[in-house]
């Protein structure tokens, strides 16, 4: 399992394209927003938590189809399915690798982009905390969506239509943490609920994703 995790990591880093692309996309989305809504720092300060979360979510979405697609095409997914480790574990490891290469860089880059959007000083810690807690859920839900659409030729658009509605609760609680944190309010409730969503998805969705993969590999 750890080998599989490391293999996915090295593939993502060395094969080019996927790694860093999400980060660049996150940067571009955040840079585009002030052009759209105007440069007033008061406006930007208000919308910064939501923009940063939506940007992170879209950046995460961008690289989802890579989770299984390449392995499906060259047949290694069939080998993984017949390997002695359960398919659920394979899914979880692949989601973890996706998180390491997409979610974690987003978490680390988010404060810098918060500066661009004039985020309130108290919000930075909560921004990092909420993204660190929430992005694993994004990767796991995304892995489920990718497992559903892996057999399709042009699954990209469909994948976003399937996955984005599933992201709603995570987005709500994640952005709420930052908003409350920036305003100096208590953040425990949304933070706990966000953690609950992450733990719940990480615990249960590998089974659904593995079921979908088995159907697609039939």
């Amino acid at each position: 399992m750890i080998r599989l995790f490391l293999r996915d990591l090295t593939l993502a880093v060395r094969a080019g394209g996927g790694f860093g692309l999400g980060l660049a996309f996150f940067l571009i989305v955040t840079v585009l927003v002030p052009f759209g809504v105007g440069p007033e720092s008061a406006t930007l300060r208000v919308i910064a938590p939501g923009i940063l979360w939506v940007g992170a979510l879209l950046a995460c979405l961008l690289s989802l189809d890579r989770i299984f697609q390449l392995d499906y095409e060259d047949g290694s997914l069939d080998l993984l399915a017949t390997a002695p480790i359960p398919l659920e574990a394979v899914v979880a490891m692949k989601a973890a690798a996706h998180w390491m290469t997409t979610g974690l860089p987003l978490v680390l880059a988010a404060p810098a982009l918060g500066v661009l959007l004039n985020l309130e000083g108290a919000g930075y810690g909560w921004l990092v905390a909420s993204l660190a807690l929430g992005t694993p859920a994004l990767s796991m839900i995304g892995a489920f969506g990718a497992a559903l659409t892996v057999g399709l030729k042009r699954g990209g658009l469909l994948l976003s239509l399937l996955v984005l509605p599933l992201y709603v609760p995570t987005l709500i609680f994640g952005a709420e943490v930052v908003r409350r944190g920036a305003a100096g309010l208590a953040v425990e409730t949304p933070l706990i609920l966000l953690a609950a969503i992450t733990l719940g998805t990480v615990a249960l969705l590998p089974f659904a994703a593995a079921a979908a993969l088995r159907v697609n590999l039939r």
């Binding site: 489920f144 559903l148 399937l162 509605p165 599933l166 709603v168 609760p169 709500i172 609680f173 709420e176 409730t189 949304p190 609920l193 969503i197 969705l205 659904a208 079921a211 979908a212 159907v215």
Partner: peptide
């Protein structure tokens, strides 16, 4: 499978927006 997972998330979203 999507319907099952979607149902759970639909209910989650229902209460999440209540909170929001």
């Amino acid at each position: 499978v999507l319907c099952l997972v979607g149902s759970v998330f639909a209910i989650l979203s229902r209460y999440a927006v209540n909170f929001w």
